[in-house]
Amino acid sequence: MLLKRLPFLLFALTAAILAQTMTSEGSEPKVGKTPENLTKQECSDCHMAYQAGFLPIRSWQAIMADLPNHFGEDASLDAATVKEIEQYLIKNAADRKGKNPRWLKAIPKDVTPMRISQFPWFRHEHGKRVNNWIKANPSVGSVSNCPACHKGADRGYFDDD
């Protein structure tokens, strides 16, 4: 069944990739793969380790500055570990090396987003249909649980569905 459809799937996939690179350049984050060891290890116990390219530098700084009050939980770490993770996140942030992708330009400079899931691009991709689906499937837990829907989220793949 799947095998018979393979040529079509390959075609659709190529078309999708082409369409994306040609038309939507900069409208959504392009993130790298799995974060580096220490970040992956320390930031993946409660949720997946989100790729640094989803947020700008100021967001990572704000998040790392208040881990004891992290979205309603204590996620504290020792100072040395905090520093090393923060350095990694900043080095790989969405606005690293002066970059300014279109989806980030939509946010005023004096606003510090604390969530990936509150960006306009995110809300656009995850509309009512997705939210209703989460409500109907309590095991997903939260829209922040990316791997529940994006099987390749840990490796940086989000365009699988």
């Binding site: 949720h47 997946m48 309603g72 095991s139 997903v140 837990g141 939260s142 922040s144 649980n145 529940a148």
Partner: peptide, 12 residues
Amino acid sequence: DPLAAGRTRVGK
């Protein structure tokens, strides 16, 4: 039930 798997608030 400590014999059951738990779940973080994010769903992991």
